[in-house]
């Protein structure tokens, strides 16, 4: 069995898909997941992030909670905290619990999280993780050759930063991810539309967009301060000065929040029709309630 997720089916049917991001909290109950579930109409699948800013509820548990509530999860796995033993073990568990989409990432280095004093693992990298998931699915064996009992029907995703330069290196890496087994690519948040166009054209030229579905990321900022902080701290975020200026001149707190949504809506309009773009991924920054607003405003 290859894969049987709804996200995969929708993509294969040629639908324009919508995914969104849920950031589990440092909570021991599922109340935050509940709020997420209720604000996700029209969304094909919801990503559950894997401790991007420090320890929170595990992405596996978060994914299961969403699934049990009838929302299809995209289970995110980063290679920072778990070695190949733990990752494969979790993957088997995820399959067993009905999870059908997995997104493979390296994750922020722990120096950029709330636990900078932690050690890290990085036993395997994100491309090796993609290849491992594909091997588990297509050959039915683990990295050490052990045969897996039962089906492992995962739909495999990877991440790309369209703004990572130089473009030649960016595309080499993207191509490797697809070659390793990535079937869908969710991108970092797009604010620089021209930069994104340049990247997707380069990807298209290499035949990547035919082999994997590019799902373009957007992120509604709540405030100019948040945008500035993200720009300064996270090198995978590419936020032009104009965006911050726009947020700043928008006015009070509520006006800035609305501006953040407007910026996203404009980006969606510009990139939705581009060749090779198969969907939109709404990054929430942990404010899942803004997702439904973006969906409504952008007419998604």
């Amino acid at each position: 069995m290859k894969h049987n997720s709804n996200l995969a089916k929708r993509i294969e049917a040629g639908d324009f898909v919508l995914t969104a991001e849920f950031l589990p909290r440092a909570s021991a109950d599922n109340s935050s997941a509940g709020a997420t579930i209720s604000s996700m109409s029209n969304v094909t699948a919801v990503n559950v992030s894997d401790n991007p800013y420090g320890p929170v509820m595990s992405s596996l548990a978060g994914s299961v909670i969403l699934r049990n509530a009838g929302v299809e999860p995209v289970y995110q796995i980063i290679t920072r905290d778990r070695n190949r033993i733990a990752i494969q073990s979790d993957l088997l568990g995820a399959a067993c619990l009905g999870i059908r989409n997995v997104l493979c990432l390296s994750g922020h280095h722990q120096a950029l999280t709330g636990s900078p004093d932690s050690s890290n693992v990085y036993d395997i990298d994100s491309i090796q993780l993609i290849a491992a998931v594909r091997q588990m699915r297509d050959q039915g064996i683990l990295l050490n050759g052990t045969k897996i009992e039962g089906d492992f029907p995962m739909f495999i995703g990877a991440v790309a930063n369209p703004f990572m330069k130089p473009m030649e290196l960016n595309v080499i890496r993207l191509k490797k991810k697809v070659e390793a087994g990535a079937e869908f690519i969710q991108t970092q948040a797009i604010f620089d539309v021209e930069g994104f166009k340049e990247w997707i054209e380069a990807a298209q030229k290499e035949g990547i967009t035919e082999k994997a579905a590019i799902i373009a990321g957007i992120l509604p900022f709540r405030s100019a301060v948040e945008a500035e902080n993200k720009r300064d701290k996270y090198m995978d975020m590419s936020i032009p000065d104009q965006v911050i200026e726009r947020m700043n001149s928008a006015g009070d707190e509520e006006a800035q929040r609305k501006e953040g949504i407007s910026i996203c809506v404009e980006v969606v309009k510009e990139i939705k029709g581009l060749d090779g773009v198969k969907g939109i991924h709404i990054l929430s920054g942990g404010r899942e309630s803004s997702i439904s607003e973006v969906i409504a405003e952008a007419g998604l």
């Binding site: 280095h109 491309i127 090198m235």
Partner: peptide
Amino acid sequence: AKHMLNGPCGGSREDRCEVRPDRPCAWQ
């Protein structure tokens, strides 16, 4: 910083590593 063996992470910049502004990205 992430021992990546297949290319840079998304936080790579031409002039710096994601983790330390004063160190170059090895992959660049």
